[in-house]
């Protein structure tokens, strides 16, 4: 059952990603990208990371995709529909991808197996009793309180930067 869901979600991700790259219409591409992101959220759920799955849906599918669609709205779609979707170097890219694929297969076949999961993960023992969200909250607001707070300065700087760059006159 475990494996079935893993392969199902992986297939969804791969098919949607392929469609996203090959779709001619940018809006269709965006929709397929949503499919990919939802598939990734499914994988997270499958790993028992409900919080990550929720954040994936809310942030990526919700927030970031809306931004994507806004930008697509500003682009002249009728014009882009007439143009070729791949640049002239797609054959070169295909060769590169094929080489990478051969390399991966070779390593998986010849290698000693996948890396072992380290056993030192701090949160592992408590996993049974506490919910996933609760655990993330505990770690975030206790041992990682400082980075959590400092990130606000990062966001502030990014915001100031956006305003400085977008203002008509400094």
């Amino acid at each position: 059952m475990d494996q079935f869901f893993f392969y199902m979600f992986s297939a969804v991700i791969l098919v949607m990603a392929l469609l996203c790259v090959t779709a001619k219409n940018a809006v269709h591409s965006a929709i397929f990208l949503i499919g990919t992101l939802l598939g990734v959220a499914g994988l997270y759920l499958h790993l028992g990371a409900e919080f990550l799955a929720g954040v994936q849906v809310i942030l990526y599918v919700g927030g970031i995709m809306v931004l994507f669609l806004f930008v697509i709205m500003l682009v002249n779609i009728d014009q882009t529909l007439k143009e070729a979707i791949f640049s002239g170097q797609w054959k070169l890219g295909l060769i590169g991808v094929a080489l990478l694929g051969v390399e991966l297969v070779w390593f998986v076949a010849k290698g000693t197996g996948l890396p072992e999961k380290p056993e030192t993960h701090a949160a592992a023992p408590a996993a049974a009793q506490l919910g996933n969200v609760q655990q993330v909250g505990d770690v975030l607001f206790q041992s990682y309180l400082l980075p959590f707070e400092i990130a606000s300065i990062l966001l502030l700087v990014a915001m100031v930067g956006a305003v400085v760059m977008a203002k008509k006159r400094i």
Binding site: P147, I153, L154, V157, G161
Partner: peptide, 25 residues
């Protein structure tokens, strides 16, 4: 002394510098 903190520090420093670079708009 933690990679998470180092990364956030680096991003704060870098993003400020990106903006300052383009200050002569």
């Amino acid at each position: 002394t933690d990679l998470v903190m180092i990364f956030i520090g680096l991003e704060i420093s870098s993003i400020s510098t990106y903006i300052l670079t383009g200050y002569r708009r």
